[in-house]
Structures are given as structure tokens and as C-alpha cells.
């Protein structure tokens, strides 16, 4: 069967119906595509705002849409086809906390990108994400068809049990980005524990009895575990924005990987995870100890007069990205000493 004169589908039978996805071969560009069908009329050339936003969105972690077409009375959205297993599959399970955090960071980035263009995914779950051959997480299968008629509100339950937020079990439901946040939290728990706790599998789900994120096979730092737990807060207003979740995870991707280039008297040296601390001491004028704590370069002791970029320092002061440490006050003129610090870290490029 040939769809729209170019997309070849292995079967001749087209059932149609809500949300059917067909894997086809584009004969023009000779590449596989996935076409998602939903009721609608593309000939009017006026799609709802949500589909139009999807076409304009650019996200590394959301499946790319190529085209839109009409076939047998339904609208088809032509998307890139991602080979490989989805995140429900055991083969995609992370094997270390750093892999786990990188995976969650990509998912959170994709959902944050979706929310930024004011779309709500509505069906976030491990089955709706794949890892492409280049290692990028791609979120797909938006719950688009569900609001074709009545905007953002719907009657009765929609979603996937175990991942659907408790407020979706009401009679008249208004969708908010917080339902995606909740589903992200459940997805994160599933990917880490390979199962959902009983609290999440009842309808509607109940508050978690304990922080299961602290009981995964690998340890998570407390702030990551708490941020992930907060995504599952029964109160949608108390769940964090996905951009916040993304940033917390991004910070931990670089844990222990920062470096400070220290230049004194034109001689460079480095501070990093293998050489964490330096004591800069100019007797009688000023002294400061700077220590790398896995995230920041922090003043851990100081006495006398010490300035960083012309500001007096204190214990707990975090060095800015590029700075000069001056030992001694301005009144000491040529007796002052200057040491520069340039901070950097590897860039995570997907």
C-alpha cells in the first residue's frame, strides 16, 4: 500500500483509528519513517496550534517531524523512525548512576523543550522513548489526538496507569505540564528500579510511603533523589518545572569533572578531583585555601586580606568562572600577589 504517493507500507489494510502508528518506507528519500494517524482534515490547511507548535519545535530529545498528510479521512504526521528498543526494554537499562543520570537528563531536557513551546505530551512513559543509534533519547507518541475536539480538557480517564498523575482520575480533567512531570517521576523510578511500587499501580495512585529513589542499585546524591521524588508529589502545584529538574541533573553530569587552571608567576597548574586543594599564603598579608567540592571551587579557610575579582572573600565563597585572587590589600601596592583561576569542565554534547 502506498500512502500519499511516496510512503510504502507493508500491508494493504488500513484500519485507521485513534493514534495508530505505521512504520513505512519513504520511497523518495529512501528512508524509514513512522506515520501517526489521527482524525482530522489536513486539506483545510489549518491544524490545531499544538500540531503546528510540534512542527516548529527543535529539540535534540524529541522525535523530528518531517511532514503532514491526509489519508482516508485521517491526518498523518510523518516522523523520523527510530530503530532499537524503547526504554521499557531491559536492554536499554542503565548500568551505573552516571548512565542513569545522563538518561534522565536527556528525558527531562526533551520534556522541558516540549513544555517551552507550550505543549503537554500527555503520555510520558518508558514505552514512548527510544535511544537512537547515536545515543540520543528521543521522546515520541504525543497524546495529540486526544484533544482534537475540546481543547485541553477531556472527560474520563486518559493516560497510562502507573504513570498517570492522580488528578487525571477525576471526572473532568484539565491537563497541565505537571502531569508530564508526574509521569517523568514514575518513568525515572521505573528505569531505575525496573518496577513500580504498589503506591503507583493502584487507581488513582497514592503518595509514596518512602523515597524509593534512595533505594536504587546505585546511590544518588540527596538533592537528585529529592528532586526526583518531588516530581511524584500528589499536589500538581508542588511538582517542579521540568527545566529545573533538567538543570539539577545537568549539574550532576559534571560531578567531579571540573578543572581550575591556576596561573601564578606565569606558571600554570591545575586543581581537579585528583588534586583538590590549594593553599595560597603570603605571610602577614593574606592567606586562603581553595578546595574543589565536586561541583564548585570554594574558599575553605581564609585569613588576612584576600580578594577575588576585587571582592573580599569569606569561607564558603564560590569562585566565579574566571578570576584573580589578590593576596594583601591595595595599600600594600607591589607587595600584593595575584593568582588567576580559570574554571572549566567538559561539555556534554549529545
Amino acid at each position: 500500500m502506498l500512502i500519499d504517493y511516496r510512503y510504502e507500507f507493508g500491508d494493504d489494510v488500513f484500519f485507521g483509528g485513534m493514534g495508530q502508528v505505521l512504520n513505512c518506507n519513504d520511497l523518495v528519500l529512501e528512508r524509514p519513517v513512522a506515520i501517526k494517524f489521527m482524525p482530522g482534515d489536513v486539506n483545510r490547511r489549518r491544524m490545531n496550534d499544538e500540531i503546528s507548535a510540534l512542527f516548529k519545535m527543535r529539540s535534540k530529545n524529541v522525535v523530528q517531524v518531517y511532514d503532514v498528510l491526509e489519508f482516508k479521512g485521517e491526518v498523518g504526521i510523518v516522523m523520523e523512525y527510530i530503530s532499537g528498543n524503547d526504554l521499557f526494554h531491559i536492554h536499554t537499562a542503565p548500568v551505573s548512576s552516571s548512565e542513569y543520570i545522563k538518561l534522565l537528563w536527556q528525558i527531562a531536557s526533551g520534556i522541558a523543550d516540549i513544555h517551552e513551546v507550550r505543549i503537554i505530551h500527555r503520555d510520558i512513559k518508558p514505552n514512548n522513548m527510544k535511544i537512537d543509534p547515536e545515543g540520543l533519547v528521543k521522546i515520541f507518541d504525543f497524546g495529540l489526538s486526544r484533544d482534537a475536539v475540546d481543547g485541553a480538557a477531556t472527560l474520563g480517564f486518559v493516560g497510562t496507569h502507573g504513570f498517570a498523575a492522580p488528578e487525571l482520575y477525576g471526572y473532568s480533567v484539565r491537563f497541565t505540564p505537571a502531569i508530564d512531570t508526574y509521569a517523568f517521576g514514575a518513568t525515572a523510578l521505573y528505569i531505575g528500579a525496573r518496577d513500580l511500587p504498589n503506591e503507583l499501580t493502584v487507581h488513582p495512585p497514592l503518595p509514596l510511603l518512602l523515597n524509593y529513589f534512595q533505594r536504587l542499585a546505585w546511590p544518588l546524591t540527596q538533592d537528585v533523589a529529592e528532586t526526583l521524588l518531588s516530581c511524584l508529589n500528589p499536589d500538581p502545584l508542588l511538582r517542579p518545572a521540568m527545566s529545573y529538574v533538567r538543570d539539577v541533573l545537568a549539574k550532576h553530569l559534571l560531578q567531579g569533572r571540573h578543572r581550575a587552571l591556576v596561573v601564578y608567576n606565569s606558571k600554570p597548574s591545575f586543581l581537579d578531583a585528583s588534586n583538590r586543594s590549594v593553599l595560597l599564603d603570603l605571610p602577614n598579608l593574606g592567606s586562603v585555601e581553595i578546595t574543589y567540592d565536586d561541583f564548585d571551587f570554594v574558599v575553605t579557610a581564609t585569613s588576612g586580606q584576600v580578594f577575588v575579582n576585587n571582592r573580599a572573600v569569606y569561607v564558603g565563597f564560590k569562585l566565579p568562572g574566571a578570576c584573580v585572587v589578590a593576596l594583601g590589600g591595595t595599600e600594600h601596592g607591589a607587595r600584593r600577589r595575584y593568582i588567576t583561576f580559570d574554571l572549566s569542565h567538559p561539555e556534554i554534547v549529545l
Binding site: 528519500l29 529512501e30 528512508r31 549529545l350
Partner: peptide, 20 residues
């Protein structure tokens, strides 16, 4: 050439959308 470029799918490569 369109077919060749359509094979590459990465954020650091311009995406091929259509040929006509």
C-alpha cells in the same frame, strides 16, 4: 545527494525534510 543527506540524523547535521 538528497537521499545521501537524508541518511544522516544528528543535532550537528542539518536535517533533510523533503525532496520534490
Amino acid at each position: 545527494s538528497a537521499i545521501v543527506s537524508a541518511k544522516v540524523n544528528h543535532p550537528n547535521v542539518a536535517k533533510t525534510l523533503d525532496y520534490l
